[in-house]
Design a protein around this nucleic acid. Structure first.
Lengths: 212, 212
DNA sequence: ACCTGAACACCGTTCAAGT
DNA sequence: ACCTGAACACCGTTCAAGT
């Protein structure tokens, strides 16, 4: 199917290099033949995004799980799907995400948020907060990986290089903007930071904060 | 100056319609003359982003302010600058943001995060978390506004339309995915949600959470 | 030092036409 | 029902040339 081919090409080449013409070439057809299956490029990308949504696991509701763990599981599976298809996070906000898989995921997310003791409007706000954070974290993460990939190095290597370059700028070394990097591998650190922020948010929600 | 003109054009037309050729036309020169001042389009956009960073207020350190209020102020001024230049949030992650204004802002952000009682690595993680959330929230917010603008309506109107359309899909009405909208104006609600999530994160940080 | 013209290698998409 | 060819209105950028 044409959408599957689009996903494959996006995975291989990234969003920047993806084009209707490139996809057509890959399928050995004229660019215009794609338009028989799909209204336009936006339409195709929207369908591709729903394929990614289809890879997100639906955490079970209740069954002994605390609501905090449910919300965390939503964020974790969402991020995992996005990391598997880095182009998806880049275009995520450009579309409404109302395809069948996206809707299924949203429905489950709502169910889970309602298991919290928070009053309805807060439960919604909590869910939004979790996803906005997950989106921000993952988008940043993916961009670093892509920049590193383009520069032919790893995220760690790139940070190293930039740190050195930035230190050359007069005044920067003394300003303290550049901090010691922890010695742990980047991936471990990232994972911990992602969960650390979720810890904070979930703890704040559980405490039923009004204003700090 | 050419960067100022770029910012103005981006503000007026948005990122999608912005091009080197369009900017050149606006300045009554050939597209190629721009390349005397700027290496390429990326270079120009990076400079434009630093102009936006220059509009962010630097919250004062200490002087009686609690560190929580400092972190909140950082998020608030960052979001305000981005809302004033919606194109900026769209391209924010594509660049390193190491221009002078960006660096000044980062330096102040670090100072503020260090006023918290958190141990150094946690203080860094806290700062990242705040900005990743602010980025996710603002990116989502801006995208809704742009989609609404393109459809010739407001964010509220667009949500209304989409809700109705989605309810037409068989099975959706019963699924409970579509929720009651609060009766408050959208802008007020958004503002509250932004701060609500900050409340949660800051409360969690202050509580020095290890794992919930 | 500053700007131009012509050209190259790309885009997404329309429209009329083919099988 | 499915695909093509030619064309249109765009991009960013190189390169050699002008003043």
């Amino acid at each position: 199917m044409i959408v599957a081919a689009a996903v494959r090409l996006l995975d291989e080449q990234g969003e920047a290099k993806f084009s209707m013409r490139a996809l057509a070439a890959r399928l050995d057809v004229t660019p215009m033949s794609l338009y028989w299956y799909v209204a336009d490029k936006d339409d195709l990308l929207e369908l591709a995004l729903d394929v990614v949504a289809g890879e997100m696991e639906l955490p079970r509701t209740s069954d002994g799980l605390r609501w905090q763990d449910g919300l965390r599981a939503l964020a974790v599976t969402w991020r995992a799907a996005m990391l598997a298809h880095p182009w998806a996070v880049r275009i995520y906000n450009d579309y409404l995400n109302i395809g069948p898989n996206s809707m299924r995921f949203s429905a489950r997310a709502l169910e889970i948020s309602r298991e919290s003791p928070l009053p309805e409007p807060d439960a919604m706000a909590a869910l939004s907060a979790i996803f906005q954070y997950a989106y921000g974290f993952t988008a940043t993460e993916v961009n670093w990986q892509e920049k590193a990939g383009a520069a032919g190095t790893t995220t760690e290597g790139l940070i190293e290089e930039i740190t050195e370059a930035v230190l050359e700028i007069p005044g920067v070394a003394e300003s303290g903007v550049v901090t010691e990097r922890p010695k742990e591998p980047e991936a471990v650190l990232r994972e911990r930071q992602f969960h650390r922020a979720l810890d904070w948010m979930l703890a704040g929600m559980a405490a039923g904060v009004a204003a700090p």
